[in-house]
Simulated assay, not measured.
Amino acid sequence: MIASYRSGRKKPVIDTNFTNRAEFQSQWSLQSDDRGDLQSCRQPRNVVATPTGLELRTLDAVKCHAKWSTGFATSKSKQSYGFFEASIKVADIDGLNNAFWLVSEDAFEIDIAEVHFPNDLHMTLHNWVTTAGTGVGFDSKFSGDLSKGFHDYGVLWTPTDIVFEVDGEPVAAIATHGAIKKPVDIRFSTALAFFAGKIPDKPAGHAMVVRSLRVYPL
């Protein structure tokens, strides 16, 4: 099924390379937060549509608790079951969580990719119905440096299963048994955090880049 979506024979409901700034602003919301558990706040100025894709930049902070700021964008539209895939080049620094994720209206979070330099990938399903939440996921180490180029990270989401893929290859799966029923929004974010590794002395100037996003209905 993943191969059939990636073949280009099916028509996506979302197909963007983020180079049109006006289109991006009309379809996405830029988020702000200043969380004490992160070593960066997130500000709208850090998310920029450019001729080479969407950049989530790490910058020196302005008016927040941390020294640095990062980026966070959420789609205004919501989608149901289908195949979601983005082509991403993660930042080439330790300590940055490079994230592509979905959040449903019924409090489920599908972390398609949380990538930590140079080659660590986390894929997780969270249920935030309760304050504490529950979750299950996978941690995969890849050969080479994932920041050296673009890689495709995706998920096939059906009423019964979630299948995670990297560059077209399935790498993990979770049986949901119909638990997730509501549509999801799409999110890209970065954050400096100790769980992502040792934060360098000068992380500003590094960015996660999203070259494309494709979403296909089931």
Rank of each mutant, 00 (worst) to 15 (best):
R187E: 12
K148T: 14
A191H: 14
G149F: 01
G168Y: 09
V163Q: 06
V115S: 04
W157S: 13
H126Q: 05
F195I: 14
T176R: 00
I186V: 15
K181D: 09
E109I: 07
L121K: 00
P183T: 08
A172N: 04
A179F: 06
G133E: 06
D167V: 09
A175G: 05
P170T: 02
A107N: 10
S147P: 04
S143Q: 12
V184P: 06
I186D: 10
V103P: 00
M123A: 12
T158I: 07
I112L: 01
V115P: 11
T130F: 04
F150Q: 08
S147E: 02
A191M: 11
F188H: 02
A175C: 00
H151W: 06
F194N: 15
V166Y: 04
V184H: 15
H151N: 10
G149Q: 13
A173L: 02
N119V: 10
G168C: 12
H126W: 07
H177I: 00
P183I: 05
V129M: 01
G137M: 11
G149R: 10
F142I: 02
H122K: 05
Y153C: 08
V184Q: 14
S189Q: 10
P118M: 08
T131N: 12
E105Q: 15
L156Y: 13
N119F: 10
F188L: 12
P170W: 01
D167H: 04
L146T: 06
S143F: 09
T158L: 07
I162C: 12
V184W: 11
T130I: 02
W157P: 14
F138W: 02
M123S: 14
A193N: 15
F117I: 04
P170K: 03
F150T: 12
P170C: 01
D111N: 11
R187I: 14
A191K: 12
T190R: 06
S140C: 04
S147D: 06
A173E: 09
P170A: 07
G154L: 08
V136T: 13
V184D: 07
Y153F: 15
T131K: 13
G137R: 05
F150M: 10
V155T: 11
T134A: 08
I186C: 15
A132M: 08
F150I: 13
R187A: 13
I174H: 06
G149L: 02
T131E: 14
H177D: 12
D161I: 03
E105R: 12
D161V: 04
V166H: 03
V115H: 03
F117P: 00
T190C: 06
G144Y: 07
H177R: 11
A172I: 03
A132H: 08
T176L: 06
G149S: 14
W128E: 03
V166S: 02
T134V: 12
A175I: 02
S189Y: 09
V163M: 01
F150C: 12
D185K: 15
M123R: 05
W128Q: 07
A193V: 12
F188C: 12
H177Y: 09
V184Y: 13
